[in-house]
Protein backbone atom coordinates (compact mmCIF):
# COMPACT_ATOMS: atom_id res chain seq x y z
CA UNK A 1 0.00 0.00 0.00
CA UNK A 2 3.07 2.20 0.20
CA UNK A 3 3.23 5.09 -2.24
CA UNK A 4 -0.25 4.23 -3.33
CA UNK A 5 -1.89 7.09 -5.27
CA UNK A 6 -5.10 6.34 -3.38
CA UNK A 7 -3.53 7.25 -0.06
CA UNK A 8 -4.16 10.99 -0.45
CA UNK A 9 -7.83 10.30 -1.13
CA UNK A 10 -7.89 7.96 1.88
CA UNK A 11 -6.46 10.66 4.13
CA UNK A 12 -9.11 13.03 2.83
CA UNK A 13 -11.78 10.44 3.64
CA UNK A 14 -10.42 10.05 7.16
CA UNK A 15 -10.49 13.83 7.56
CA UNK A 16 -14.09 14.05 6.28
CA UNK A 17 -15.19 11.32 8.67
CA UNK A 18 -13.51 12.98 11.64
CA UNK A 19 -14.78 16.44 10.73
CA UNK A 20 -18.44 15.66 10.11
CA UNK A 21 -19.02 11.91 10.50
CA UNK A 22 -19.46 11.67 6.74
CA UNK A 23 -20.68 8.10 6.30
CA UNK A 24 -19.84 8.14 2.58
CA UNK A 25 -16.22 8.84 3.42
CA UNK A 26 -16.15 5.99 5.94
CA UNK A 27 -17.81 3.63 3.48
CA UNK A 28 -15.21 4.54 0.86
CA UNK A 29 -12.43 3.62 3.30
CA UNK A 30 -14.13 0.33 4.11
CA UNK A 31 -14.66 -0.50 0.43
CA UNK A 32 -11.04 0.19 -0.37
CA UNK A 33 -9.40 -1.61 2.52
CA UNK A 34 -11.82 -4.44 3.25
CA UNK A 35 -9.99 -7.13 1.25
CA UNK A 36 -6.62 -6.26 2.78
CA UNK A 37 -8.03 -5.92 6.31
CA UNK A 38 -9.79 -9.25 5.86
CA UNK A 39 -6.42 -10.83 5.10
CA UNK A 40 -4.85 -9.12 8.11
CA UNK A 41 -7.65 -10.48 10.31
CA UNK A 42 -7.09 -13.96 8.89
CA UNK A 43 -3.36 -13.74 9.62
CA UNK A 44 -3.84 -12.49 13.19
CA UNK A 45 -6.57 -14.99 14.01
CA UNK A 46 -4.45 -17.73 12.46
CA UNK A 47 -5.81 -21.25 12.62
CA UNK A 48 -8.83 -20.03 14.64
CA UNK A 49 -9.98 -18.30 11.44
CA UNK A 50 -9.71 -21.58 9.57
CA UNK A 51 -11.61 -23.48 12.24
CA UNK A 52 -14.35 -20.88 12.41
CA UNK A 53 -14.64 -18.50 9.43
CA UNK A 54 -17.50 -16.78 11.27
CA UNK A 55 -14.96 -15.70 13.88
CA UNK A 56 -13.13 -13.66 11.28
CA UNK A 57 -16.37 -11.88 10.38
CA UNK A 58 -17.03 -11.13 14.03
CA UNK A 59 -13.51 -9.78 14.53
CA UNK A 60 -13.64 -7.68 11.37
CA UNK A 61 -17.03 -6.30 12.31
CA UNK A 62 -15.70 -5.38 15.75
CA UNK A 63 -12.68 -3.79 14.08
CA UNK A 64 -14.90 -1.61 11.88
CA UNK A 65 -17.02 -0.64 14.86
CA UNK A 66 -13.93 0.44 16.79
CA UNK A 67 -12.64 2.28 13.75
CA UNK A 68 -15.59 4.68 13.91
CA UNK A 69 -14.00 6.30 16.97
CA UNK A 70 -10.39 5.20 16.59
CA UNK A 71 -9.96 7.23 13.39
CA UNK A 72 -9.81 10.33 15.57
CA UNK A 73 -6.38 9.14 16.67
CA UNK A 74 -5.09 8.84 13.11
CA UNK A 75 -2.10 11.03 12.28
CA UNK A 76 -2.00 12.17 8.67
CA UNK A 77 1.72 11.46 8.18
CA UNK A 78 1.31 7.70 8.44
CA UNK A 79 -0.25 5.34 5.94
CA UNK A 80 -4.01 4.83 6.61
CA UNK A 81 -3.76 1.11 5.89
CA UNK A 82 -1.25 0.40 8.65
CA UNK A 83 -3.33 2.41 11.12
CA UNK A 84 -6.53 0.57 10.15
CA UNK A 85 -4.68 -2.76 10.26
CA UNK A 86 -3.63 -1.92 13.83
CA UNK A 87 -7.26 -1.36 14.86
CA UNK A 88 -8.34 -4.62 13.21
CA UNK A 89 -5.43 -6.47 14.82
CA UNK A 90 -6.45 -5.36 18.31
CA UNK A 91 -10.07 -6.31 17.61
CA UNK A 92 -8.88 -9.74 16.41
CA UNK A 93 -6.77 -10.31 19.53
CA UNK A 94 -9.72 -9.40 21.78
CA UNK A 95 -12.01 -11.66 19.76
CA UNK A 96 -9.49 -14.49 20.12
CA UNK A 97 -9.41 -14.00 23.90
CA UNK A 98 -13.19 -14.12 24.07
CA UNK A 99 -13.26 -17.17 21.84
CA UNK A 100 -10.78 -18.95 24.07
CA UNK A 101 -13.00 -18.23 27.06
CA UNK A 102 -16.16 -19.32 25.30
CA UNK A 103 -15.21 -22.82 24.29
CA UNK A 104 -18.84 -23.61 23.81
CA UNK A 105 -18.39 -22.48 20.25
CA UNK A 106 -16.12 -25.39 19.46
CA UNK A 107 -18.81 -27.46 17.82
CA UNK A 108 -19.95 -24.63 15.58
CA UNK A 109 -16.32 -23.93 14.75
CA UNK A 110 -15.70 -27.51 13.71
CA UNK A 111 -18.76 -27.53 11.46
CA UNK A 112 -17.99 -24.21 9.82
CA UNK A 113 -14.29 -24.99 9.56
CA UNK A 114 -15.04 -28.23 7.77
CA UNK A 115 -17.38 -26.43 5.37
CA UNK A 116 -14.84 -23.69 4.68
CA UNK A 117 -11.94 -26.07 4.31
CA UNK A 118 -13.35 -28.65 1.98
CA UNK A 119 -15.87 -26.90 -0.21
CA UNK A 120 -13.53 -24.23 -1.53
CA UNK A 121 -14.64 -21.85 -4.22
CA UNK A 122 -16.27 -24.48 -6.36
CA UNK A 123 -13.98 -23.75 -9.29
CA UNK A 124 -11.47 -26.53 -8.70
CA UNK A 125 -12.36 -28.71 -5.72
CA UNK A 126 -9.03 -30.56 -5.65
CA UNK A 127 -6.99 -27.38 -5.96
CA UNK A 128 -9.16 -25.62 -3.40
CA UNK A 129 -8.72 -28.46 -0.92
CA UNK A 130 -4.95 -28.31 -1.45
CA UNK A 131 -4.94 -24.55 -0.91
CA UNK A 132 -7.05 -24.96 2.21
CA UNK A 133 -4.65 -27.53 3.67
CA UNK A 134 -1.66 -25.32 2.88
CA UNK A 135 -3.42 -22.31 4.39
CA UNK A 136 -4.12 -24.34 7.54
CA UNK A 137 -0.46 -25.20 7.92
CA UNK A 138 0.78 -21.69 7.25
CA UNK A 139 -1.72 -20.09 9.63
CA UNK A 140 -0.94 -22.67 12.31
CA UNK A 141 2.75 -21.79 11.89
CA UNK A 142 1.90 -18.08 12.24
CA UNK A 143 -0.06 -18.92 15.41
CA UNK A 144 3.06 -20.33 16.97
CA UNK A 145 4.91 -17.04 16.50
CA UNK A 146 2.54 -15.26 18.85
CA UNK A 147 1.66 -11.59 18.73
CA UNK A 148 3.02 -9.02 17.85
CA UNK A 149 5.58 -11.00 15.82
CA UNK A 150 3.03 -12.63 13.54
CA UNK A 151 1.36 -9.28 12.85
CA UNK A 152 4.72 -7.64 12.16
CA UNK A 153 5.85 -10.35 9.75
CA UNK A 154 2.52 -10.46 7.99
CA UNK A 155 2.17 -6.69 7.56
CA UNK A 156 5.77 -6.26 6.45
CA UNK A 157 6.19 -9.22 4.11
CA UNK A 158 2.69 -9.91 2.87
CA UNK A 159 1.19 -6.40 2.83
CA UNK A 160 4.35 -4.37 2.26
CA UNK A 161 4.13 -2.06 5.27
CA UNK A 162 7.38 -0.17 5.92
CA UNK A 163 9.46 -0.61 9.07
CA UNK A 164 8.81 3.04 9.99
CA UNK A 165 5.04 2.57 9.69
CA UNK A 166 5.17 -0.57 11.78
CA UNK A 167 7.27 1.17 14.42
CA UNK A 168 4.68 3.94 14.56
CA UNK A 169 1.69 1.59 14.65
CA UNK A 170 3.17 -0.81 17.21
CA UNK A 171 4.78 1.96 19.28
CA UNK A 172 8.26 0.48 19.26
CA UNK A 173 11.62 1.73 17.97
CA UNK A 174 12.53 0.88 14.37
CA UNK A 175 15.53 -1.14 15.57
CA UNK A 176 13.24 -3.31 17.70
CA UNK A 177 10.90 -3.84 14.75
CA UNK A 178 13.82 -4.93 12.56
CA UNK A 179 15.25 -7.34 15.11
CA UNK A 180 11.81 -8.79 15.89
CA UNK A 181 11.17 -9.22 12.16
CA UNK A 182 14.47 -11.03 11.64
CA UNK A 183 13.89 -13.37 14.58
CA UNK A 184 10.27 -14.00 13.62
CA UNK A 185 11.14 -14.83 10.01
CA UNK A 186 13.83 -17.28 11.06
CA UNK A 187 11.47 -18.95 13.50
CA UNK A 188 8.61 -19.03 10.99
CA UNK A 189 10.82 -20.62 8.34
CA UNK A 190 11.87 -23.26 10.87
CA UNK A 191 8.26 -24.05 11.79
CA UNK A 192 7.21 -24.19 8.14
CA UNK A 193 10.11 -26.52 7.36
CA UNK A 194 8.97 -28.81 10.20
CA UNK A 195 5.51 -28.82 8.62
CA UNK A 196 6.99 -29.59 5.22
CA UNK A 197 6.00 -26.24 3.72
CA UNK A 198 8.53 -24.48 1.52
CA UNK A 199 7.89 -20.83 0.71
Amino acid sequence: MNGDPGSAADRENVHRWNAGRDSEAFAALVRRYDPALRRVAAAVLGSAARRDPGLLEDALQEGYRRMLDALRGYRAESEPFVFLAGVVRRACLDTLRKETRARGRTERAAVLGAAGGTEGTGRDPAGDAERAILADRVLAALDRLGDPDRSLVYLRDAEGASVAELADAFRMPEGTVKSRLARARTRLRGILAEEGVEP
Binding site: A41, R50, G116, P199
Partner: peptide, 13 residues
Amino acid sequence: LLRRAAETAAEAS
Protein backbone atom coordinates in the same frame (compact mmCIF):
# COMPACT_ATOMS: atom_id res chain seq x y z
CA LEU B 1 2.92 -17.62 1.06
CA LEU B 2 1.46 -15.78 4.05
CA ARG B 3 -0.71 -13.68 1.81
CA ARG B 4 -2.11 -16.71 -0.05
CA ALA B 5 -2.93 -18.40 3.27
CA ALA B 6 -4.65 -15.28 4.56
CA GLU B 7 -6.58 -14.91 1.30
CA THR B 8 -7.81 -18.50 1.54
CA ALA B 9 -9.01 -17.98 5.12
CA ALA B 10 -10.59 -14.65 4.18
CA GLU B 11 -12.42 -16.20 1.22
CA ALA B 12 -13.77 -18.99 3.42
CA SER B 13 -15.07 -16.50 5.95
